[in-house]
Write a protein that binds this DNA or RNA. Sequence first.
DNA 1: CTCCATCGATGCACGGAAGGTATCAACCTA
DNA 2: TAGGTTGATACCTTCCGTGCATCGATGGAG
Lengths: 300, 300
Amino acid sequence: MLTLDQARAFVAVAEELHFGRAADRLRMTQPPLSRQIQKLEKALGVTLLLRGPRGAALTAAGEAFRDECRRLLDMAERAPRRAQLIASGQVGLVRLGYTAASSFSVLGPVLARIKDALPGVAVELHEMVTAQQLEAMRSGAIDIGLARPPFPPEGVESAPLLTEPLVVAVPAGHRLSRRGTPVSGRELRDEPMITYSADQARYFSDLVADLVEVRADQVTHTAAQILTLVALVGAGHGVALVPRSTRQLGMPGVEMVPLRESPADAVRLHAVWPEASTNPALHRVLPLLREPLDTAQPMQ
Amino acid sequence: MLTLDQARAFVAVAEELHFGRAADRLRMTQPPLSRQIQKLEKALGVTLLLRGPRGAALTAAGEAFRDECRRLLDMAERAPRRAQLIASGQVGLVRLGYTAASSFSVLGPVLARIKDALPGVAVELHEMVTAQQLEAMRSGAIDIGLARPPFPPEGVESAPLLTEPLVVAVPAGHRLSRRGTPVSGRELRDEPMITYSADQARYFSDLVADLVEVRADQVTHTAAQILTLVALVGAGHGVALVPRSTRQLGMPGVEMVPLRESPADAVRLHAVWPEASTNPALHRVLPLLREPLDTAQPMQ
DNA sequence: CTCCATCGATGCACGGAAGGTATCAACCTA
DNA sequence: TAGGTTGATACCTTCCGTGCATCGATGGAG
């Protein structure tokens, strides 16, 4: 059976055409080298070299086999490299879950930063809500998520990525638009409103409920996706409370007005990942998320 | 340093995800297999497998390395094959010298037979006269020649390929054409003739001189190439003695008439090769040239 | 023609690496 | 908690690769 040592030995002899010099190059002595080549030829059943008193010459088969051996050794030398790159996280795949809303704000900058710092790392994008992300992490379907708290106390780690206030989205030309001062919750008391679905968008639904009082008869529509809410605002169906970063959408016919009751950190977006993750690329990506993101950057 | 045995061991474990079964497949016991994998991981500086109480699992690096190892083993397995094929002569290159005249007769059938019987053998064609072929053989530039005797007594072997008579090439409509009986040399006494160059085509020049008497004042032209002679015959410059196989050329306006004085084996074409040749493909080709060739076959 | 240099092959002894057996430690299951 | 996995470790043996010394063959120099 062929071994890489035999291949190395044969290539050395085939290049030097001289057993002594080849042995020298291989840091060994000539006798064992001769025996290795003999064994190789016996194993192949092929004469690779013609020995003469003035050195060795290659047969046609020897020339072909020398080339094969060169390729083989080349591959053997490169084989570990890819594994090492993957293990070091410089090359790899990160499967990333993100909420639709996060694509307005941090997703673009996050992807840009990864691409810049880790060009060998591919990112696979999976849009899903927070609960789905946590489930996908448990099953190993994604490596990291951009999601909203709260998170289970065990099994995952998280780091805050972005905090922002809720603002009031109003149709262009609305009485509350273009005002210098923030709107207060009371001023919305008689406004038609579009609100979040309590079961499909619990996070935002609860958030709004904590900040302003919304009567059922005010509500014209209920939606799960922020994108839907602002579209409905733009269509004149009422006003809605949305994260400030929704401004990045540039939805025509919609303006954002600060909400007095909203703290600056009302809406939180975290990076979440399984604490037991063994994906080396993930551990290269995580430090990139610790530093502040430039969320003014356009989404990608 | 990576070895093929380690690669085989790792692939087995990576496929079985179980050291015991992998060891089984490798016809060895589990402990040394575990050690080999440990050594491999240490050499790479990479964790390839996650050991658990219910078997092993691959890391991302392990998956990539398994694929690399598969390719490496695949190549290692195929590497000897090409050398073996070349050594057996089933694959290879034969550099063949041939005289221009032989291309009218045996060259086509020879090539066809090689292509048919040894599809893996490529033939490189080199047109040269006999003397050039012998020199090229000595210097190792060609492996075999289609040439005319005599050959040096040492260093080369030969086998007759084709013997044929000389015939008289006459212009169409010539008084000697379309005659039922062979022409005798005497009848050519007063014919304008095209003859062979004594130095550039000594073989044919001598051959003609041995068979018929040609006076200098008969000679209208002298040429080295048979093709030139028949072209001149076709142009009405005279008659010429050419090998019968020249008929295969189908030169328009030229007809061939038997020559009474020519024995059937007047013109000889042999295969010649260096007796010391180590080209395995050549030794596969030689037996093909022993059997009679169908020279009626059109040239290729 | 003889001697000597060169080159690869062979004989012999040693050391290290790989394999096998026995056993252990960790973990899951019942 | 006991039994059955699974992989790791300890210890021993064997064998292969290596180095040293030497041989046989060939070709060139004197």
